[in-house]
Design a protein around this nucleic acid. Structure first.
Lengths: 327, 327
DNA sequence: GACAACATGTCAACCGGTTGACATGTTTAT
DNA sequence: ATAAACATGTCAACCGGTTGACATGTTGTC
């Protein structure tokens, strides 16, 4: 049996298509990029050759020349989280619709991983980065060689940040608990060392509490914190958790202690992702406009990529109070 | 003010590093790739130059030459789902540890999207693809130019598939309901038109039912199906849902109808992802070994990428029955 | 019949690294 | 003293497309 060309399993390249179609390399490139004059007949011939040979243009070669990859890097703690899972879904979706692909990076909130991802994305010549995971102080963010947008995270002095209206959300949540008659309301938040807009949730909580002449008291989530809260505050009757997962842990612990929700204790969370709404519909929460956040973030990034300027740095999108059975 | 080189905002390239360090292009490349002889002194000089200039080697140029990108494509319905979110997290994590990056594709289960993603990934010269979303019949999968691994999906005759032991899972779930005394057990599954190993869950259900001389009855999930099930089967006392989200919908509907779980109706799901366990711990379920699935899938893909052969096609990993309050 | 628009080809430079061949000079070991 | 190992440089081809300049020929139109 002859070892013909067709048997050799090597990638088909533009030259092969040109040969097959009996035209020049340039003509094939013209067909691919729709430039210059091309007759319908030739176009068809070339397309047929591409079909026949199962040709896929090498985007790497193209990227190298045009100095653009149409790839966006996404750096977030993890897809294994209802909120980020939904956010990343939308980010990818919107990007795809606009002709961009996404490289996914799960930083797990670790600075070292984030740093090496950042380096990796730059090596890969991504056109821009959207990041929602962050420990401020990573030098590379301050010296951005790259279009950059943060989601719910300050990345550097002049990097745009998109977030839900955290202050308003915190206000709505706290106010609801007060309106429902809670006297001893406690707030649980993530690590406050992070300089994130999400801290505004706590700020709003504190402000509203003081306005109503209550004493604000915040705990930071961590090992056994929820147990501690119940132990240290026997008269607790309201909890504002800064995300729904924390809220669900609170509910679990309350159940274990036979504390009745909402009769004895009212609970409200934050995020309101689709999955949480589906699996835990009874939880009251402040819902973030996830799709709108993703939309805006991508838009702002593309603006930067296209060299358009935009002076506004902080973008806050309205939240929605969802009252359910836990309040 | 002079417009020195430093002011020009252009990407630093290998040549610049060479100039800065006062060595040749080749030497810099040798440092980068650790080949040939290099003195410590020179290595240091070069590294300092890279640091100083904030140099990031252009991986695109490198990929083009070595004909390898170290990128893996992931095609799944959506990250906005606890199971896929967790799976994708692990896939990315493991890949990263092995020096690969991932391009994320949310197919939404749509054939057209999947097709265009497949094409896109080939253009981008990914080294391989792991796919868990699929409508069989996409030609490209049958004619793979590319290393390929399926998760819970048959992609083509000889593409490796990794999945949980669906048959055993279906058996365990059904048997549990029977053991708990259910008489009228109904199964709800996803679209059965898909040729997926997950169909074995239904098969096991049917087999176990018949063995115990019960009449198996399956519904396909869709608009209002759950309501229909309750309406058509007033004496129903057991439901095996082929995933936890469906199970949670069943629970919701039961609550609406004041049907007590588990007294009047027992429910068991499938997946047992971390998020579901956290938000809906009361649900009994069959837990898939997500991390192990991801691990194996990546391993099998890398084997293909490295040209090693592996004749085993179907890989089944053991599931775990989690008994909770709904049974 | 002449000129514009259309169609295609040839050729080479370019994107930014990698690599092999080869030359030259310096150390080190024996 | 001499060969082997070490260190670095020069040069050019290469990866697979893209693009611009330029040439040549064909149609279509007024």
């Amino acid at each position: 049996m002859k070892n013909t060309n067709e048997n050799v399993n090597q990638k088909v390249k533009l030259d092969d298509v040109a040969n097959e179609a009996g035209v020049s390399k340039t003509t094939v490139s013209r067909v691919l990029n729709n430039r210059g004059y091309i007759s319908e007949k030739t176009r068809k011939k070339v397309n047929e050759a591409m079909e026949l040979l199962n040709y896929h243009p090498n985007e790497i070669a193209r990227s190298l020349f045009i100095n653009k990859t149409f790839i966006i890097g996404l750096i977030f703690p993890t897809t294994n989280n209802p909120f980020y899972g939904q956010l990343i879904f939308h980010l990818e979706n919107i990007s795809e619709a606009l002709g961009y692909k996404v490289l996914l990076c799960n930083s797990e909130g670790r600075e070292d991983k984030e740093k090496s991802y950042l380096e990796m994305l730059q090596r890969h010549q991504v056109d821009g980065i959207i990041a929602g995971s962050h420990n401020r102080g990573i030098l590379e963010y301050d010296n951005p060689q790259l279009p950059l947008v943060g989601i719910d995270r300050y990345l550097s002095e002049n990097t745009p940040v998109v977030s839900s209206d955290n202050y308003d959300g915190g206000k709505k949540a706290t106010q609801l608990l007060i309106d429902k008659g809670c006297k001893k309301i406690i707030h649980i938040n993530g690590s406050p060392s992070l300089e994130t807009p999400a801290n505004l949730r706590r700020e709003a909580y504190e402000d509203v509490m003081k306005e109503n002449e209550y004493y604000p008291q915040s705990y930071v989530i961590g090992e056994n914190v929820i147990e501690t809260i119940f132990n240290e505050n026997p008269n607790i009757d309201g909890i504002f958790a800064s995300d729904d997962l924390i809220a669900s842990s609170v509910m679990k612990e309350a159940k274990r202690r036979n504390i009745n929700i909402p009769a004895d204790l009212k609970v409200i969370g934050y995020d309101g992702s689709e999955i949480t709404r589906m699996l835990l519909p009874e939880l009251s929460t402040i819902q973030q406009p996830v799709k709108e956040i993703a939309d805006l973030a991508v838009q702002l990034l593309l603006k930067q990529i296209n060299g358009e300027t935009e002076s506004k740095i902080e973008w806050k999108l309205p939240v929605k109070l969802i009252e359910s059975e836990t309040t």
